[in-house]
Nucleic acid binder design. Structure first.
Lengths: 342, 342
DNA sequence: GAATATCTGATGTACGTTGCCCAAAATTGC
DNA sequence: GCAATTTTGGGCAACGTACATCAGATATTC
């Protein structure tokens, strides 16, 4: 009736508790034949170790560290807040979270800091990855030292990271196109795309996905060359203003980076009936307000709270030797209109 | 450094372990003054009981039961699958889930089954509520017997349920209108609404939210009287087919219940260019396929996995005497197009 | 066949909490 | 002031696992 314990395993395998313990915790000093007997007994009984009891006995704490880009980036500061609040929430569950900030877009600095990590002082790492061989090497070293690493928000697929927690930006771009295309379906014209910079991977991917769908599904809409707004509201306002003045058949705008205040400014004089349909990225105070006022039609978002919790769960699974896929909740591309804002 | 234990509390309160234990577990035989001393010590130390250790000692199991409508309803079968998979996942966390199915839309049958529940055999209940006094009475009886009840998907706000896990259906309806209105903005005409039955609370609420937004924001679209499809594909196909034949200016369809296979059947002969924009509810194998083929434009969804886990967490919190609000993750109204399907 | 080297068993303590028991102390009633 | 009662203390065995130690049992090797 109640689930089997180590005692039951020992009994049916015909060995002592110590031996079961050796097998269970991967200690050596067990003959291959005996090991197989014990494993067979565990399979037969369907034994599952009681993680709560094990952790109690081990006095285990999961010491996890997050490496985030420093600087004023609102999104990353949001992630940091989320890590901190998640950390205090999960303290009773034996999870200890700490944050280390590193210079943004600086692969060597990140690699340096990863190399400085003492594998004894930490049980798992979540890293917003920068693409470079040095970072990959540092991750490999940590993984070999028994410290699992997951990538967060920005992936490094060919590294030895155990898991990636974040959204697929091509999907995000395709979703934006699906929305904007339908919003403008019976109103042919031009569509403007505003990015921060096309040297950032996620922006490139969003643009790519957006164009894939626009070209194949909404041929009556013409996608104009991408404006680079440098995630700066003033730049965005200037460039978009010029574009609006030059093209009176602009029916849609896709803003896939930051600087959305610039979009709002550029359009504040346009009468509502003539205003193009607008789809933007990330829920921030400004985009929320613009959705509520009817200025923006939709916002694509990734739930950072869910991402942080997902990273913690994935790391815990890796530390316990389980599969991070099973532990992780799907993190999807979210669509928000005025009425379903959280 | 490490967190305080009962021993620390006992020491700083100047009482024995037994007394702390009595306070902690709400047993009597403790003078008011002593109780206050113990509480003060716990506050001072910031004591938090180690739930894992407590449960280990108590050999506690959380036996939870889900009451779901039976029948071919794909959404409810999805919930059931989710409960079952969640149940096996959470077995190591001392949670035992079971499912009982009851005739759909049948308040008396549900009440009957709730009355038959033995409060000793179960620690908590999650119920997809049907609106009726008998159900409310049955819930009240269970709560009084010490078995917390949460409502799932469909609420019964005036009952004694400890929590509701599900989406705000007015918001869902408003969101659907925001989408459908934008999809049809430049193509005036009629919009059809298909519900399962207007005696189910969630359907009524969706319809309400839908109309609020349609009337105030999209006056060029005319919302037709609701079709009741009884969540049955055949009925839906018949009634919708008749409607399509009678009105050639139908530009949008909002299907807020189940039976979406009927919508697909009714529209399979309509050429794609003339097809109305379609927004439906719930991701099921059928709606997914229709989104992928381009038959449906968008689906409003509630994440049933998240809901089931939310219900489990809420029940566990209620059983432990904690607040279900704190335990619950926000469950939002999700929007899916073809490209951001999970 | 002895000397190792490698396995295995038995036993005990610990983790933080629960829950039971019995004795000691404090409080109450008369 | 003594008995009856309530409140408290101290002890201890669980819960399922981890980890250490030491003694004993097999296997290898020469």
């Amino acid at each position: 009736m109640s689930r089997p314990t180590v005692h039951d395993v020992a009994r049916t395998a015909g060995v002592s508790l110590s031996t079961v313990d050796r097998v269970l915790n991967g200690r050596d000093g067990v003959r291959a034949a005996t090991l197989e007997r014990v494993n067979a007994a565990m399979r037969e009984l369907g034994y599952q170790r009681d993680v709560a009891a094990a952790n109690l006995s081990k006095r285990r704490r999961y010491r996890l560290r997050f490496f985030l880009p420093e600087g004023p980036n609102a999104f990353m500061r949001g992630v940091q807040d989320e890590v901190e609040s998640c950390g205090s929430e999960m303290w009773p569950e034996r999870v200890e979270l700490s944050v280390e900030t590193v210079p943004p877009f600086d692969a060597e600095a990140l690699a340096e800091r990863l190399r400085a990590v003492d594998p004894e002082a930490v049980d798992g790492l979540a890293v917003v990855a920068t693409d470079s061989a040095a970072v990959m090497a540092a991750i490999a070293r940590l993984v070999e030292a028994g410290v699992p690493v997951v990538t967060l928000v920005s992936d490094l697929p060919s590294s030895r990271r155990g898991y990636f927690v974040g959204i697929d930006n091509v999907v995000a771009g395709r979703t934006a196109a699906g929305l904007l295309g339908r919003f403008c379906r019976f109103r042919p014209g031009k569509v403007a795309v505003i990015a921060g910079s096309m040297v950032v991977r996620d922006h490139v991917e969003r643009r790519l996905g957006f164009e894939q769908v626009m070209r194949s599904e909404f041929p009556t809409l013409e996608v104009m060359p991408t404006i680079e707004g440098l995630d700066d509201a003033d730049v965005v306002a200037d460039k978009l203003g010029a574009l609006l003045a030059a093209h009176d058949d602009l029916v849609g705008i896709y803003s896939l980076g930051a600087g959305n205040r610039g979009v709002i400014r550029a359009l504040s004089d346009t009468p509502e009936a003539e205003r193009p349909a607008i789809v933007v990225h990330e829920l921030t105070p400004h985009t929320r307000e613009a959705l509520l006022s009817g200025m923006f039609d939709a916002a694509i978002n990734q739930d950072i709270g869910r991402e942080v919790r997902g990273a913690v769960r994935a790391l815990r699974a890796l530390i316990d030797g389980a599969s991070p896929e099973a532990a992780g909740e799907r993190i999807g591309v979210e669509v928000f209109l005025r009425d379903n804002l959280p």
